[in-house]
Structures are given as C-alpha cells and as structure tokens.
C-alpha cells in the first residue's frame, strides 16, 4: 500500500546528511513519530518542518538530545502560553 505522505527515513537521512542513529534517537525521545511499515521506517511529511528544526538545533548549535528534548518542551509551553494570551486578549475585547 503506497502512502504519499510517508517518507522513508533512509532517504531523509541522505537528503539532510544526518546519521540514522540521530533519527532513531529523535524517535526514542518522542520528538518525531517514526512509522514502520513492512520493516521500513517512515516519517509523515507533516513532521518535516519540525525535523528540520531539530536538525538545526543539533548540528548548527551542537545541542545534545537531552537539550533538544528540554527545548522542545519549553517551546511548546511558550507556544501554548502565547495562544492563551491571544485568547485572553480576545476575551477582554468582549468587555471593552
């Protein structure tokens, strides 16, 4: 069964010039979701933007996996707080 949304991990490793072990670690830390079909590992293309960010954090800024994990959690929190702030600002407009 062919799924155009899935990209083989091996191909991504070649494209981004990263080790397979790096991708495996990202999967183990839950930073990306690796999907296995017929013993071939894939990544959904929706995750590519996040993957590119993780690659930059590791290879450009030399941040290890634990650091990337912590940063990802904090960025999610920042994002959630920003959304909450926007939502509260919008609610406040009801009383203006």
């Amino acid at each position: 069964m062919e799924n155009n949304d899935l990209l083989p991990l091996e191909v991504l490793c070649t494209h981004y010039n990263v080790e397979v072990s790096f991708m495996t670690s990202l999967g183990e830390y839950g930073l990306i979701e690796v999907i296995t079909v017929n013993e071939i590992r894939y990544l959904n293309k929706e995750q590519i933007t996040d993957l590119e960010k993780l690659i930059r954090l590791h290879y450009e800024l030399e941040i290890n996996m634990e650091g990337i994990d912590a940063i990802s959690h904090l960025l999610k929190r920042v994002n959630n707080l920003q959304n909450e702030l926007n939502s509260l600002k919008n609610r406040l407009k009801l009383y203006e």
């Binding site: 930059r56 954090l57 450009e60 800024l61 941040i63 940063i71 960025l75 920042v78 994002n79 920003q82």
Partner: peptide, 15 residues
C-alpha cells in the same frame, strides 16, 4: 559564537 547563537537562534526565539 556557539554560546550566543544558542541564545539568539531564531528557532529558539520564535517571533
């Protein structure tokens, strides 16, 4: 450079 890039990298400081 590494130290400051980690602090100010756009991926770590969205928007």
């Amino acid at each position: 450079y590494r130290k400051l890039a980690r602090k100010f990298h756009p991926d770590l400081n969205p928007n």
